[in-house]
Design a protein around this nucleic acid. Sequence first.
RNA 1: GCCGCCUUAGCUCAGUUGGUUAGAGCGCCAGAUUGUGGCUCUGGAGGUCCUCAGUUCGAACCUGAGAGGUGGUACCA
Length: 489
Amino acid sequence: MTDSPAFRPEPRTPRGFQDRRARDLRVEREILAQVSAVYEQYGFEALDTSAFEYADALGKFLPDSDRPNEGVFALQDDDEQWMALRYDLTAPLARFAAQHWETLPKPFRRYAYGPVWRNEKPGPGRFREFIQCDADTVGSARPEADAEIVALAVAGLEAAGLPRGTAVLKLNNRKLLNGLLSAAGVADDHQKLAVLRAVDKLDRLGADGVRLLLGEGRKDESGAFTKGAGLNARGIEAVLAFVAAGGGSRTDVLARIADVIGGSAEGDEGLADLSRIDVALKGLGVAEDQAVFDPSIVRGLEYYTGAVFEAELLLDTVDEKGERLRFGSIGGGGRYDDLVARFTGERTPATGFSFGVSRLAAALRAAGREPGHQARGPVVIIAFSEADMAHYFEVAGELRGAGIAAEVYLGSSGMKAQMKYADRRMSPAAVMLGGDEIAAGTVTVKDLDLGRALAAKVTDNQTWRGERPGQATIRRAELVAFVRRIIEG
RNA sequence: GCCGCCUUAGCUCAGUUGGUUAGAGCGCCAGAUUGUGGCUCUGGAGGUCCUCAGUUCGAACCUGAGAGGUGGUACCA
């Protein structure tokens, strides 16, 4: 079965993908378990859809024959139809909702999590495959539906390990800026989008940088020029005054926005929406420090039609080298009333929130909030001799039956290496059942944590070997109870 | 996508003006210690010097192209 002997494939993870081991997985699974419980409490049902979608259902990046993989991983099925791996969970939801609209309970509330794929240049903390977790309501245009998504996001992040004060949900409404721009005579959609992109960079570039981007454009330190939105001076100042209207309670912000935005129909609508969201949030018990109105939150996406949300981490974070790290947004969402209409032709209001699970886990780690417990290995049963394997498996069975993770060492190395193996697996204990013990009806159990602690004080090898720290020989019948005591500390 | 920097052992990195056999620390394996993870000592394994082409008597080192990584920037569902 070997190929040409000269060929040795290099074992490596594909670019932008990653292997995740027990330590990372347990944190991520814990987050998902906690968040799922919260989402279900809020009345959202679980949904899992396929990894592949027909490319036309994903919308924006339709593969054409020249560049079928732009942005997405796509392939052509044997019936020549283009299929693509989903790049988020919102587009598949829109497809699902459109497909089953007649039979769904409406409004349809669902949460989903799973891998999504993006075929683009990977960067640090930016992968081509990652786990996303979404909750959405389809079929309710009420601002209260947005408010509930916000409340759920706040509760979800808290359950995921970010207690109150470590994160804040910021919200805004697209209608406000749209109304402002319309009133200023900006009708062109491209120009509006350019304004949104410019505002989106406020936290990074500051008001002066954004001012340039709203106008002619901006040259950055590397000399690259970014074309601006081309607003006139009055328009620029109006937008800047609007985005600066944040701060203080939600009521304060609303009052300030009302001053700045100055009566366009769409703007007034946005204000009314936010006001109703505020009332609902108060009823839902979402405090002023948990969810704030922030006019500078726009989200770069085209498809948002009303409320937009962004969850921001308030903790100081450091990377592996101890350098300060800006994490910024750890989740976001908003209202997208036109997405389902792509399939049905009927405007179907929808709103949702999503976050990257690995990213949140990385944020928790960077903030030193990673759930402390390390991934523990099984109790390792030392294998002394071929002839006694049956005894070892008997012990493994007993421990497993008692709900204790256990395994018989199945390598071919000597005892020293076996102890090392148990050490490396972070096993709580090693069980020794050699010829002596079997003959005497006893078993020797070593508490590896205790042994490690005791070993730190021993410098002399003779003592170390003589004392056998953390180790006890007990009657065979006491094994399970003894091991359980070690594990439970 | 564009601009800068980087690429030598599993990891972190040395490597003289271009000169013979490319090193260190950590890690790994083994022994000292017939049945004990730590410490210490001893030994060992491990390298297409990112790839290809060129310059040269001779390239880890110089030149070019490409790949990968990284930092900005753009885009971001």
